[in-house]
């Protein structure tokens, strides 16, 4: 009988573990949002994180966006040529970058650069008893570490997405006008005319959501870290994987919410 039940028991145990894990993350997120509005506040920490998450992410965001926009223009031109629709390059690059590729790529870059760094830093602090030291110095680790990081990501990642969208469109513009023979003024006019306000709003809302996910996962897995170097490594890896998957899942849900017929 056990032979028949064992696979179901394993599936049940895995399901319970996943649900418990989701529950812990949701509780952690709820506590973080409650602490955002309760003093004490740490403006100096927030300013440092705005700089770290925002300003220092600009190079990677810019490089990712410009190459993606350029490749997108080439693909749309080649694909469009199959049914004589090469002229749609400006419009599709604009919609593709602003609605999808801009926020998703910025989100994934932030997960790679910021989530990993937050998780490794906080996990190391846990392993070296710095989190315990914070508590003994009457400082709540969630208020001092998590809230400034999540708040900073909520504020700056939409700005990074706006920068990424713009640079991505410029990447497409450079390829289209430089290699594919598009007129400069007409390309920009077509881009401007085709984009709607909701495209931009959805892009920025996605950026805010992805920023919160990226920072939250870094803080959560950092604080859950186990002992030793292996614990820090595992926390870092898990945080990046969780942040990336959640960003892609949230992207689908937000796209449904904004654009479903």
């Amino acid at each position: 009988m056990d032979i028949f039940l064992t696979p179901f028991a394993a599936i049940g145990a895995a399901t319970l573990a996943i649900l418990a894990s989701i529950g812990r993350v949701v509780m952690y997120a709820a506590q973080t949002f409650m602490h955002i509005f309760r003093p004490p506040f740490y403006p100096r920490e927030l300013a440092a994180q705005l700089l770290h998450i925002g300003y220092f992410s600009l190079p990677v965001v810019g490089l990712t966006a410009i190459f993606t926009g350029a490749a997108l223009a080439l693909q749309i031109y080649a694909g469009g040529a199959r049914f004589n629709a090469e002229a749609v390059v400006p419009q599709i690059v604009a919609v593709g970058m602003v609605r999808e590729l801009g926020p998703v790529l910025v989100g994934l870059m932030i997960a790679a650069r910021v989530t990993s760094s937050i998780a490794a830093e906080i996990a190391t602090m846990k392993v070296t008893e710095q989190l315990d030291a914070l508590v003994t110095l009457s400082t709540h680790p969630m208020k001092y570490l998590t809230v400034p990081r999540v708040l900073a990501a909520l504020i700056v990642v939409p700005m990074l997405v706006a920068v990424g969208d713009t640079i991505g469109i410029m990447g497409g513009y450079l390829v289209a006008t430089g290699r594919l023979g598009f007129n400069e003024a007409a390309y920009l006019q077509n881009t401007y005319n085709f984009l709607e306000i909701m495209d931009v709003v959805s892009s920025l809302v996605k950026g805010a959501a992805f920023g919160v996910i990226a920072a939250m996962m870094g803080c959560y897995y950092g604080m859950q870290s186990e002992r030793g170097a292996q614990g820090v490594g595992k926390a870092t890896k898990t945080s990046v994987v969780a942040a990336s998957v959640l960003i892609l899942a949230a992207n689908y849900i937000l796209t449904e919410a904004f654009f479903s017929a």
């Binding site: 602090m125 070296t128 008893e129 710095q130 315990d132 030291a133 508590v135 003994t136 110095l137 009457s138």
Partner: peptide, 20 residues
């Protein structure tokens, strides 16, 4: 009150636990 309670204590940690 946790803050008032902890304010009575000072602690030297094994590895120092200084904030990097």
């Amino acid at each position: 009150d946790r803050d008032a309670f902890l304010a009575q204590f000072g602690m030297l940690f094994q590895g120092g636990a200084l904030f990097d």
